[in-house]
Simulated assay, not measured.
Amino acid sequence: KYDQALTPDNYNLLSMVYVGWRISDPKAFFPKFANDPNKEPISKAEESLEGLVRSAKSAVIGKHPLADFLSTNEAQFVKIETETLDLVQAQVSTNNYGITIDFLGIKKLGLPESVTTAVFDRMQSERQVLVSATQNDGEAKAEMIRSSANRKSAEMLADAEGQATRIRAAGEAEAAKSFAVFQQDPELAYFLLRLEALEPSLKDRATLIFDQNTPPFDLLKGGPTDLLKNKPR
Rank of each mutant, 00 (worst) to 15 (best):
I80M: 15
A140E: 09
H64S: 11
I145L: 10
W21N: 00
P26Y: 11
F182T: 05
E199H: 09
D218H: 14
S55C: 00
I101R: 01
F29A: 10
L219C: 03
A59C: 03
M123V: 10
Q124S: 08
F29G: 09
N73K: 09
F77Y: 14
N150L: 12
P224F: 14
A34C: 02
D137I: 01
G51Q: 10
Q4N: 09
S114V: 06
K107M: 04
P232Q: 07
F120L: 15
D36Q: 09
R168A: 15
T100K: 10
V78D: 06
E143N: 14
G62E: 02
A59I: 08
A75L: 10
R127V: 08
E46A: 13
N150P: 00
A176H: 04
G162A: 01
N95I: 00
L49M: 12
E139D: 12
T84W: 02
I42V: 13
L52E: 12
T82V: 03
N73S: 09
V181Q: 03
G105R: 12
L227H: 12
Q135K: 03
E113H: 05
A175Y: 11
Y190G: 12
P186K: 00
K44N: 11
T116L: 14
S15G: 13
S147H: 08
P65W: 02
H64E: 05
D9Y: 00
Y2C: 03
F30K: 05
G162V: 00
D137S: 15
L157A: 10
E50L: 04
V53A: 01
K32R: 15
P26N: 09
